[in-house]
Design a protein around this nucleic acid. Structure first.
Length: 104
DNA sequence: CTCTTGACGCCGG
DNA sequence: TCCGGCGCCAAGA
C-alpha cells in the first residue's frame, strides 16, 4: 500500500485497482463511486499517485484516454482486449464501461 | 485573500 | 463530429 494518509486518495486508488482487465471507468464514474469530490479531483489523484494502479483503465466519458498518455493507454487497453472503436483511438464505452460492481 | 490551472463533464450550435 | 462556453473542486502562486 502506498502510504498515502489521505482517505480520499486511498479510496480512489482502491476503486481503480478494482477495475478488471479489458474494462474501464470514467473519471466521473470513479468520483461518483467514491462519493466525494468530482472528476477533476480524481484526475489530480491519478496524476499524482496513479503510478501504482491501472491508470489506463480510467478514461474520459467520451472514450478518450488520459491526456499525454493516450498512446500508452491505448496500447495497454488493446493488449488487455478492451473494446476499442474501429478507429482504434478511443474505447467503446458501450461495451467496456465498468460500473464498479456488477458486470456490464 | 484572489487568480490561474488542471490526466473533467455536460449542453448547445 | 468538431468547437465553444459554463460549471465543478482543489492545489499552487
Amino acid at each position: 500500500m502506498r502510504v498515502e494518509h489521505n482517505a480520499y486518495v486511498e479510496k480512489v486508488l482502491s476503486v481503480v485497482e478494482s477495475i478488471p482487465p479489458g474494462r474501464v471507468m470514467s473519471y466521473g464514474d470513479v468520483a461518483e463511486y467514491v462519493g466525494i469530490g468530482g472528476p477533476r479531483q480524481v484526475g489530480r489523484v491519478m496524476s499524482e499517485y496513479g503510478g501504482g494502479v491501472p491508470w489506463w483503465r480510467v478514461i474520459r466519458t467520451n472514450g478518450s484516454p488520459p491526456a499525454c498518455h493516450e498512446r500508452e493507454a491505448l496500447e495497454l487497453l488493446r493488449a488487455e482486449g478492451a473494446a476499442l472503436r474501429p478507429d482504434g483511438l478511443r474505447v467503446d464505452m458501450r461495451l467496456a464501461r465498468w460500473d464498479g460492481s456488477r458486470a456490464r
